[in-house]
Amino acid sequence: MSLVTDEIRASASEVYHGDAICQEKSKFLLTEMSLPNGLLPLEDIEECGYVKDTGFVWLKQKKEKKHKFEKIGKLVSYGTEVTATIEKGKIKKLTGVKTKELMLWITLSDITVNESNPDKISFQATSGLYRTFPVSAFQVEDVKKDVGVAKDAKVVEGDVTKETQVKEV
């Protein structure tokens, strides 16, 4: 049963359909909320939405996805529907996300960037157990594609024009 009702959709500030725009908007929202942009490595996202008044956000993907965060060696499962309430530095009431601990899948409920040490992020399970990791383990660098920049570009700084070499990507 979906947590996203027609009433929630109608009250949403933003609703998007299609993987490309949903990828872009979800990463943007995470960044705006001071969270690492790689927390939700979903694929084939069909719909995403955000209710600004309550902070409720949802993402729907075609099928469940398992992702291993290599820097910390953790396997995480993302269901077909992921929902949460999001605010600066926090994700609360998370649904659809589980992490594997030993041989058990543990449902996550909250994610918080440490206020006193913003380089640390904590994940809390519904049972109350929690783990803390470096934020950098969940940060994804944007890969820029070659957009036709000339090899010999001119950069103007104040009144000085500099010749610069631009590498092709």
Rank of each mutant, 00 (worst) to 15 (best):
57 V>S: 02
87 E>K: 14
136 S>H: 12
15 V>I: 12
62 K>L: 06
9 R>K: 15
56 F>L: 04
158 G>L: 09
38 G>R: 02
75 L>A: 08
36 P>Y: 10
130 Y>M: 02
67 H>Y: 15
136 S>D: 14
33 M>Y: 11
104 L>S: 13
56 F>I: 09
94 L>E: 09
70 E>F: 15
61 Q>S: 09
9 R>Y: 01
158 G>H: 08
40 L>Q: 07
44 D>Q: 15
74 K>M: 12
91 I>F: 08
77 S>E: 15
81 E>P: 00
131 R>T: 04
166 V>S: 11
152 D>H: 13
43 E>W: 14
21 I>R: 09
47 E>T: 05
157 E>K: 15
167 K>Y: 14
73 G>R: 12
25 K>I: 05
72 I>T: 05
48 C>Y: 09
9 R>H: 00
70 E>H: 10
82 V>W: 03
163 E>G: 05
42 L>W: 07
153 A>Q: 15
168 E>H: 15
82 V>N: 03
3 L>S: 08
136 S>T: 09
141 E>K: 15
3 L>M: 11
79 G>E: 14
166 V>E: 08
43 E>Y: 12
25 K>S: 03
139 Q>N: 02
120 K>N: 10
121 I>R: 02
103 M>P: 01
37 N>A: 06
85 T>S: 07
23 Q>Y: 12
155 V>L: 15
157 E>R: 10
148 G>R: 12
133 F>I: 04
122 S>H: 02
21 I>M: 05
72 I>S: 10
11 S>C: 07
95 T>E: 13
89 G>R: 06
67 H>W: 15
46 E>D: 08
111 I>L: 08
107 T>M: 07
137 A>Y: 06
40 L>D: 02
12 A>E: 04
122 S>L: 05
53 D>G: 01
167 K>H: 14
24 E>D: 14
106 I>E: 00
84 A>F: 12
90 K>Q: 08
105 W>K: 09
128 G>M: 07
40 L>F: 14
169 V>M: 10
155 V>A: 14
85 T>H: 06
114 N>W: 06
143 V>K: 15
120 K>D: 04
138 F>C: 05
105 W>S: 03
92 K>G: 01
71 K>E: 14
106 I>N: 00
123 F>Q: 03
151 K>V: 07
17 H>G: 01
13 S>P: 00
